[in-house]
Amino acid sequence: MVAIEQQPAAVSSTERGVTNLVRQSLILGARNVRLLANFGSVVMLLIFPLVFLYGFLAIFGTLLRGQGIDYAQYLTPAIIVHWMFNIADTTAFWFATDRRTGMLSRYRSMAINRGAVVVGRLCADALRAAISIGVIVGAGYLAGFRFLTGPVAIAGFVLLAIALSMTLAAGTSALGLASTDPEAVAATVSFPHLLLIMVSTAFVPAEAFPSWLQPVVRNSPVSVVLDAMRTLADGGAVLPVLWPALVWLAGLLVVFSYLATHSFRRAL
């Protein structure tokens, strides 16, 4: 009898290597993008941002002009940040859906790099972020928003927004991967979302808050990132406002990634 030799460590070759990771991520990313072809996602990406932008402009534009603030210029980056949160919220929703429907288990049984599941998700979300930035900036231009800086600053503006979206998505993924109820997760993440957006300089300057709350407002991650984005759009010294934003994002990314990795290991 000839003993059949067991292959050492049965890891298929398709589970290793950067090329495989990239190719598999693109395939899964494309699948995630195709799932966006539904009424709800289109409204969410193309119509709802306009309702918010023009709605806030209509009710607060005149009042804030009285205080010397060009509200179209002030509000457009804020609506973008709000939408980066919305996109991160749906990341949690999709991960929870994939877990409930058994799609994550299916991925696990396939000979693919597990990182591709995450990278594929992030690719689709980065695309959604880029689309909504385009929509909101376009709508903002109609209302009077202008980039007063050069192409490098504009690229920095867009990248910073996408980086924010990805960082938040890491945080919401930790929740989404830990749950099998997409609706409950969507409701849970919307509370920290609204709190962070509202207690910030997104819609009104810090001076409009009660004085005891102003230090919190000024240093909240949303305000700090928005300060950087507004400077990148309006002009001015970039470095002093950019590094606090990057520190906040990097800090959050470390914490969120740790939590997300933990949930991912348990979910998959």
């Binding site: 409204v43 918010f52 709605g55 209509a58 534009g61």
Partner: peptide, 26 residues
Amino acid sequence: IISMLNPILQLLLFFSSGFVPITAFP
């Protein structure tokens, strides 16, 4: 249903006298 009603309700709320007086509108 959700995606149709949500923007409609939000629009009604924004473009109303609910948050600011009518005179604050353009």
